[in-house]
């Protein structure tokens, strides 16, 4: 194990994770809004927002799956040391991290009719987050919101599964926007 995995975590976990969670919660409660999520410095290619979200939400109870270019030794070691979360196959993951093209959404857990919350949260690393592109409506959105989603049909199909489905977080640098399954995408 090299020393890089030992650094970049929270210096004051109770305070920093509380502030980070408020950013994540605002993003999830207000789909399409771009919120700041910072505090941790994760090894590349993991962004600040994605790394901070993993530190805030993951522990030995949550399986994490790294997709594509994000599945590096540096990232694996960092997550293992900092959170203790087991690294698992996509089928069993509670949290999935990767680029849009790397993630096979079809195998992820979407919950059961009795327990729709037993579903994966997908953290998609983006090259930029902008308030333009797809139009979003639904809970958390006053009239409509706009966000540069990487796809349309995928998210429309996901919303059609409601109350089952996947919940997405889009990260870029220290920014996060979210798209829960309840949001309708036009």
């Amino acid at each position: 194990m090299d020393h890089a995995s030992l650094s970049g975590g929270f210096t004051d976990p109770p305070q920093q994770s509380a502030v980070a969670f408020r950013g994540i919660m605002q993003a999830m409660a207000r789909p399409g809004s771009i919120c700041e999520v910072a505090g941790a410095v994760a090894p590349a290619p993991l962004s600040v927002a994605a790394g901070t979200a993993l530190l805030t939400l993951c522990d030995p109870d949550t399986g994490v799956h790294l997709a594509g270019a994000w599945d590096t030794k540096g990232v694996r070691d960092w997550i293992t040391f900092q959170t203790g979360a087991p690294l698992v196959a996509a089928e069993a993951a509670d949290f999935v991290v990767g680029g849009w093209g790397d993630i096979d959404l079809s195998v992820l857990q979407t919950g059961t009719p009795e327990y729709p919350d037993r579903s994966a949260t997908v953290i998609v690393e983006m090259s930029e987050l902008r308030a333009e592109g797809a139009t979003l409506t639904g809970p958390g959105i006053k009239e409509r919101a706009v966000l540069n989603l990487p796809d349309l049909a995928v998210f429309q199909r996901n919303a059609a599964l409601f109350p089952l489905g996947l919940d997405f977080m889009f990260t870029c640098g220290a920014q996060m926007a979210a798209l829960p399954r309840s949001t309708k995408v036009i």
């Binding site: 994770s17 949550t62 919350d117 809970p139 829960p180």
Partner: peptide, 18 residues
């Protein structure tokens, strides 16, 4: 902190499935 993480995950799923 581990308890808060568990509650925070539940809050996010609650917000996603109103």
């Amino acid at each position: 902190e581990q308890t808060k993480r568990m509650i925070r995950r539940a809050i996010l799923k609650g917000l996603a499935i109103p």
